[in-house]
Design a protein around this nucleic acid. Structure first.
Lengths: 259, 259
DNA sequence: CATCATTTGGGTACGGCGTACGCAAACTAT
DNA sequence: ATAGTTTGCGTACGCCGTACCCAAATGATG
């Protein structure tokens, strides 16, 4: 989503993120603050999605002209970067130290699980974050604070620094993908106005023809997977299943890394 | 990426996908085929990305007017759905039956790994697929053929139908997310024209201030994670690490499901 | 062959987008 | 009072998806 062809100043974006501006004091006083713009952007994206987010719409929300935003922001892409860092700052943890286990710290699994669920909640609060996955936003205070807090979940359990990062990347990646799957599944019936039953009814004639021929396995498993408990419940089950599996994979790794 | 607010006929899209059209034979002969349009769309997206994909551009590639496409396709969104199904049809497998292990079939892990690598190759051939993750496209022949072939990797190893689907969803989800991470990491220096060194140089002054204060852990681990072997090699390592971890998680599940 | 119904190709146009450019207003320093 | 600097924003340009409509091409019917 498109910052391709971008030639904008990344260092200036960092200054914006960390609040390091010159602010010479001269000239007309700004009646419009960067924080308000970013907040309006987040609000606009929260209801309306990334598609509904336009510079004019953000400006309307603030009661200013569209071009006024460009006095504080270089690009729409830069505004999006600032928005990301702002919502990442919302995440808070307070996993102190131990959890279930011994004082050496064996509650890492429950801590990682808490990290996963917090991230899922974040994505559900701001679904447009899911569509920003392909660009690596600059490291702002919100991004780093979140990273720092989440590293604490896997700190001191016998992993090297690189391994801690690898584990965290894996878990966060799983959460993003699984949450995207949940959101897509949830938005499907609402978009076409059909329930799950009608959706399958529309697909069935095509499935039936193909069932006895080449794709018998797909037809059988697909039916079982979606018709089992009803669409939404199934997506929830997939979330729990995947999370357990990922944590199992981490657990076997942590076990042998400690050896 | 917007098909929000879509009210288009999904059944007609299915007919297009499976080649079930009326084709009354009357009227002017079509000088433009649906296949050519979809192929041109894929080609346009391959070089230029999803941002660069516009109806006018696809039409130019075919030497026709932009509005001519709408005789064969309802929407841009429908064209995208057709494009997705077409590229999914590219994936081919020939995992016969056994692999490394006993005739009962214990080569599932290598088969799943082959599935994962094939999907990564697919995403690298068509990076725009990564940005289409949030919409669940209709089940066309390419989608189902791929699903069927991939289910074969986990068929007959003691899992229920639902569990087979869950495992496959988990692995494919990991591949998508990890590949997106690789792509984002790769595109970062090319976008700003900087190498990894300059990127860190730009971030360093801000990191330094924060290092001793609140986010010491993040600063230490972040530096270790990215500076270890150089950016790109690290991303490759993250891919292998995550894949092994996911497969480990599946393995422990398969083991206890067989009990 | 003439006529009509039907289907395809595509030109024009509309509303929305990101944003380059330039000017008027507001403010500080002199 | 004047100059210099910064902010707000109106206008305009080139993109985009696509609604609408008409001309060209073809099969069916007389």
């Amino acid at each position: 989503m498109g910052d391709s062809g971008g030639e904008r100043d990344r260092v200036r974006t960092l200054d914006l993120l960390w609040g390091t501006r010159a602010a010479s004091g001269l000239g007309r006083k700004p009646g419009l603050g960067l924080d308000q713009i970013v907040a309006a952007g987040v609000a606009a994206a929260d209801d309306g999605g990334l598609d509904g987010l336009s510079m004019r719409r953000v400006a309307d929300r603030l009661g200013v002209g569209a071009m006024s935003l460009y006095r504080h922001v270089q690009d729409k892409a830069e505004l999006l970067d600032l928005m990301v860092d702002r919502v990442l700052a919302e995440v808070r943890y307070d996993h102190g130290e131990g959890g279930t286990g011994s004082p050496g710290g064996d509650g890492w699994r429950s801590r990682l699980e808490r990290v996963a669920r917090a991230n899922r909640a974040l994505y559900e609060r701001h679904p447009w974050l899911l569509a920003r996955f392909e660009s690596r936003p600059p490291l702002g205070p919100g991004t780093i604070a979140k990273y720092d807090a989440e590293l604490r979940a896997v700190d001191g359990i016998g992993l090297t620094d690189v391994e801690m990062d690898l584990v965290l990347t894996l878990v966060l990646g799983y959460v993003r993908d699984a949450t995207a799957g949940l959101a897509a599944w949830r938005s499907l019936p609402e978009r076409s106005g059909e329930g799950d039953a009608e959706w399958w009814a529309a697909h069935e004639p095509h499935m039936a023809r193909v069932l006895g021929e080449r794709f018998a396995l797909a037809a059988r498993v697909g039916a079982a997977a979606t018709a089992g408990y009803g669409g939404l419940h199934d997506a929830e089950r997939a979330w729990e299943f995947g999370l357990s599996r990922v944590l199992d994979g981490v657990e076997s790794f942590v076990g042998q890394a400690r050896s």
